[in-house]
């Protein structure tokens, strides 16, 4: 597959992102608070943090970068291979990638240099509260 295959067009500079508030923002203008508020409003989604703990060239898949993260309060270790231009959203900083030059070439998106210690926005599905703890629920006539 060509190097551009699968580049998500969400990251193209100028792409319009609709927040959970209904507000429209260009992808390059997104801020940490936009993710936080949207996740809150969406219900069932929780903002989590994934810290970059190691960055290196992929051994198995040349051309890709292997990123090691520790995720959430449990500090779970997660490893992923991504193209060097793939942007991540760092808390309080904004878009960052292993290769800001490539990100700029392919997406036009300005990025910071991703570094070990960066804490990236990630979003998990929130576990539903246990039934015992459930308080008064609004009436759902069409519960499935």
């Amino acid at each position: 597959p060509g190097p551009a295959a699968g580049n998500p067009s969400h990251f193209m500079k100028g792409a319009i992102i609709q927040l959970a508030t209904g507000e429209l923002k260009r992808v390059e203008d997104l801020q940490t608070q936009d993710f936080v508020r949207s996740a809150e409003l969406s219900g069932g989604l929780k903002i989590d943090s994934s810290m970059v703990v190691d960055i290196r060239a992929s051994q198995q898949r040349p051309g890709l970068v292997t990123l090691h993260f520790t995720v959430g309060e449990q500090q779970s270790k997660v490893t992923i291979d991504v193209p060097p231009e793939h942007p991540f959203f760092v808390f309080g900083q904004g878009w960052s990638s292993y290769s800001p030059e490539r990100t700029a070439q392919l997406y036009g998106l300005a990025c910071h240099q991703m570094q070990v210690g960066d804490v990236c926005v990630s979003i998990t599905l929130q576990r539903p509260p246990s039934p015992q703890k459930a308080t008064a629920q609004p009436h759902h006539p069409q519960q499935r």
Binding site: I17, Q18, V121
Partner: peptide
Amino acid sequence: VPVFPWHSLVPFLAPTQSD
């Protein structure tokens, strides 16, 4: 210009814990 709902970005963000 296409409009993407914000949650369509979620799969491209940093990984979450797999449990």
